[in-house]
Amino acid sequence: MTNAAFPQVRIVPIRMLKPATAERLLNMLAGIAGIRRMMIHGPGLPKKVPYGPARGSPNPHSDRKAIRVADAEIALRVQVGTVILEVEDASAIEEIRSLCDDFFVEFPYLLQEGRFMKTAPTLVDYAKYGPDADTSLVGLTDPRNGEKPVVIRTEQ
């Protein structure tokens, strides 16, 4: 959950990222020490066709695959549109900005500062995780699909 003491930023590339590019970007960000939490956001790529006459049939999609970030494997289930980050302090933001300036060369990007993560558990969070849920994990994943956040450990 959002702690007002920590600043948040959002990386918005002008194009939506392919898994390979997202992997490079996230690995680059994983090297920054001041990032507390990170969220990948974008339109979903369901495993099955959700509606229409072909509803329920498998939906092969080349962008729905697992990527490796530091020591963790992340199964992408969205097309990467934005990356939301919660950082320790403003110096991390400047580090992110300078790395992203070098990273996005083929198309531009925006680095926005603001509040992008959930500030309080919703009714669904309460129903899924109960009253004693770890508030630092609430809001990082979709409570409806049962997936847990991935913990990335970087070498200190």
Partner: peptide, 26 residues
């Protein structure tokens, strides 16, 4: 797209394709 049309107002993908949840065209 007969069904699941979402994508007309989204940013394009890196290769310039419009987003398609079902990836009908590659």
């Amino acid at each position: 797209r007969g069904a699941t049309v979402h994508g007309h107002s989204l940013r394009l993908a890196e290769d310039g394709m419009m987003f398609d949840m079902l990836q009908r065209n590659v």
